[in-house]
Nucleic acid binder design. Structure first.
Length: 501
DNA sequence: TGGCAACTCAGAGCAACACC
DNA sequence: GGTGTTGCTCTGAGTTGCCA
């Protein structure tokens, strides 16, 4: 828009150039008058003419010498015709100037609008910034809440604080203290006397003696203590009633105004406590008494050396800590050196002890692991034995069925099993198992058969190849004997069948 | 980031008794 | 559960710097 406003006067200039040739001196006066009138019309606002090329305007008002010369030359011949055309040009120019003025006004309006848009955008950005700041404040608040530093005036926090104060008041012996029972008052009087009579009696024994003595005290002797108790009680009840009323009123006030917020706060507080508690539990993990203690730091060695002197100046523990801390910070490296060397030696010793400790611990852990693995092995074997047992039971059932069928077949005339037939010899494992079972039963009386079997199985796997070979040899011998028996059995069976035949 | 190392002392908690 | 008594035990406070 601004561009068009600027380009427009240039166009006007080009239009004005041919018009110059038609100007005449006669037309000069009315033009000046007209211009003055136009300026008066614009009245304070920038004149549209000023936006036009000033040279061109000057030429219109005050023509160049060349133009004047030309005009003079053709003065007489064109005097009548030029007057009317100049008026026409003037009107045209005035129209254009008006157009330009309007154009400029419009441009200014648009610029103003644009400024307003920019301003609103800036305001929007500012508002956003403020909102972001607010959010950050909120975030910080939430983070602070997570840390749970009691800086907020929430009702529950106030109440809990009051509760704490109450308990402290009671312990500390304030005016809200409960009255002592007659026995307690009497005890207070009698304690020193009983202690005098029984100097060797400790706290527990003294209490027992007093308890027994109280039972022998007459009603008349008890009377002053009971009276004191009654008066103490009356005073106490008055104070308690007053406190109770005040407390109830405060409670009501708090509850009415802040119950909702208080509950939220309370929940967060409980969660915070829970988290803190779990953290503490971790911290309170039991320590290994055999673990070497951490070595003393250079500063600690120094503070231990310095402490007696400061204690001589009757400084408190905390003051001593602060003083030694400050002294240590400002101490020169040369002065620190002996303490640091001592600390270094302590550390070396500690590291050596730690190495031994970790080694020992690792060994212990390894042993434990081995034991656990062995137990696991046994358990697996037991499980396998159970499985085998089940399979065996299934086989027995199957075999029983088969036997029944065989017997049925035998009845029908088929061959039956000869009881004189030699039994198959035991395998090397069975031979080993018999001996191992006998030994284990002596070692672990009362252990069930399944466990024994499992242990035997483990032992069998653990024995050396040589030992296994020994058992294999035994089994081989048994097999040889079985074979011979079988030969004899076959012979006798054959001869008996011949005799029968 | 929090626990731990040494030191000392105040303060809290616990023990038994009878009673409210 | 709190009230008195005594003496023992445990905890927190404060410091620095290492380490998991």
């Amino acid at each position: 828009m601004a561009e068009s406003a600027v380009s427009q006067p240039a166009a006007l200039n080009s239009d004005l150039v041919p018009a110059k040739k038609k100007r005449s001196n006669a037309a000069r006066k009315p033009l000046a008058q007209k211009n003055a009138a136009a300026d008066d019309e614009s009245n304070g606002t920038p004149s549209p003419g000023k936006a036009v090329d000033p040279v061109a305007v000057k030429e219109v008002i005050q023509p160049s010498p060349k133009a004047v010369k030309q005009t003079k030359a053709s003065k007489k011949t064109t005097k009548q015709t030029s007057a009317s055309s100049f008026e026409k040009d003037l009107l045209e120019m005035q129209e254009r100037l008006e157009k330009l003025r309007l154009e400029k006004e419009r441009t200014e309006e648009l610029l103003k609008e644009k400024d307003e848009i920019l301003k609103s955008k800036e305001e929007e950005l500012e508002a956003r910034g403020k909102k972001q700041e607010q959010l950050q404040v909120e975030l910080k608040k939430l983070q602070k809440l997570k840390e749970f530093k009691p800086t907020m005036n929430f009702p529950i926090a106030q109440q809990s604080k009051d509760k704490d104060n109450d308990s402290k008041k009671k312990k500390g012996g304030s005016e809200t203290k409960r009255p002592s029972a007659p026995y307690i008052l009497w005890c207070k009087d009698q304690w020193a006397e009983v202690k005098k009579e029984n100097p060797d009696a400790d706290f527990k024994e003294t209490s027992i003696i007093l308890g027994a003595k109280w039972k022998t005290v007459s009603a008349e002797e008890k009377k002053p203590y009971e009276e004191q108790y009654q008066s103490d009680k009356e005073a106490y009840l008055k104070i308690v009633a007053k406190e109770k009323r005040e407390k109830a009123a405060m409670k009501l006030f708090d509850e009415e105004n802040k119950q909702k917020t208080a509950m939220e706060f309370y929940e967060q507080y409980m969660q915070f406590l829970q988290e803190a508690e779990t953290g503490n539990k971790k911290a309170k993990k039991e320590k290994d008494p055999l673990k070497p203690k951490k070595p003393m730091l250079a500063y600690f060695i120094y503070s231990n050396e310095r402490r007696p002197a400061l204690m001589g100046q009757s400084k408190s523990v905390l003051e001593i800590s602060k003083i030694t801390g400050e002294e240590w910070k400002t101490m020169s490296e040369r002065k620190k050196k002996p303490y640091e060397e001592m600390a270094k030696k302590n550390k070396e010793k500690y590291l050596a002890e730690m190495e031994e400790y970790t080694k020992k611990k690792a060994e212990e852990e390894l042993n434990q692991k081995t034991e656990e693995e062995e137990m696991l092995k046994i358990q697996k074997q037991e499980a396998l034995q159970l499985l085998k047992k089940k399979e065996k039971t299934d086989n027995i059932i199957k075999k029983t069925k088969e036997d029944k069928q065989k017997k049925k077949q035998a009845k029908e005339g088929k061959a039956e099993v000869d009881p004189n037939k030699p039994k198959k010899p035991a395998s090397s494992y069975i031979l080993f198992s018999k001996e191992a079972r006998k030994n284990l039963q002596e070692e672990r009386p009362g252990v069930n058969n399944a466990t024994l079997s499992a242990l035997i199985s483990v032992k069998w796997k653990e024995i050396t190849d040589e030992e296994k070979q020994r058992w294999n040899d035994k089994a081989a011998q048994a097999m040889d004997a079985y074979k011979k028996e079988m030969e004899e059995y076959k012979k006798s069976a054959a001869s008996s069948s011949v005799n029968e035949g």
